[in-house]
């Protein structure tokens, strides 16, 4: 549901990073904020607990280009991953144009990944949406750790839309911008 403002010559898209607790959603946004040209980004807003776990969301606006005089902005959000924050997750998902599902590749986190993926579907269906109508990519994070699932196995479980899968180690910045670019492309493609 992009906001197209002809008078201000702007198109605004909302992208949400989704996934279980401690999978690396905030790490992605923080890395983008640190590395991208300050001229194209706004302020990083985080509503977190004292332990720096996301309580409500993180938010980062980016202006990634001007085409035909129309400035294109992407508003990046994360959701709180812990299961008891579902009400907050539903609010952040409202009006989104794209989703990055950040999966924790570690074998020990399989149940949390699947639960979060199913929860994403439930919440989108509850708001009358579904992943086939949105820009969607799956980021397989923490590929730098040992005891991780293969991309193929995880993809079978966490990607029922044939969407792009991107390996990443967000803590080191690996795959972060590739993921962002992939979801931005998907989001634009879904509205063209």
């Amino acid at each position: 549901m992009p906001l197209v403002n002809f008078a201000a010559r702007e198109i605004n898209y909302k992208i949400v990073y989704y996934g279980c607790g401690l999978c690396g959603k905030t790490t992605n946004i923080q890395y983008i904020h640190r590395k991208i040209n300050p001229n194209v980004r706004g302020k990083l807003v985080s509503i977190a607990t004292e332990e720096e776990r996301t309580l409500y969301f993180d938010f980062l606006p980016l202006t990634l280009g001007t085409v035909r005089g129309m400035k294109t902005r992407f508003h990046l959000y994360t959701v709180p991953g812990q299961s008891y924050y579902n009400a907050s997750r539903r609010l952040v998902l409202q009006g989104c144009d794209g989703v990055v599902f950040v999966a924790d590749s570690q074998i020990t986190r399989l149940d949390e990944n699947v639960e979060s993926y199913l929860n994403l579907w439930d919440n989108l269906i509850a708001q009358g949406d579904d992943l086939s109508r949105l820009g969607f990519v799956v980021q397989m994070n923490k590929r730098d750790l040992v005891d991780v699932f293969s991309l193929g196995d995880l993809g079978d479980l966490l990607n029922h839309t044939g969407s792009p899968i991107l390996p990443a180690a967000a803590i080191n910045g690996i795959g972060v911008f590739e993921t962002l670019k992939a979801v931005c492309k998907q989001v634009i493609a879904k509205t063209s």
Binding site: I36, N37, G65
Partner: peptide, 28 residues
């Protein structure tokens, strides 16, 4: 009566713009 400008040509141009932004920041 203004048409939504997001078409295939826009998509391609936007991809080039994004490539440029990411390249400038050494993020690629």
């Amino acid at each position: 009566d203004q048409q939504l400008v997001v078409d295939d040509a826009y998509e391609m141009s936007m991809e080039r713009e994004m490539d440029q932004v990411f390249r400038e920041n050494g993020s690629e």
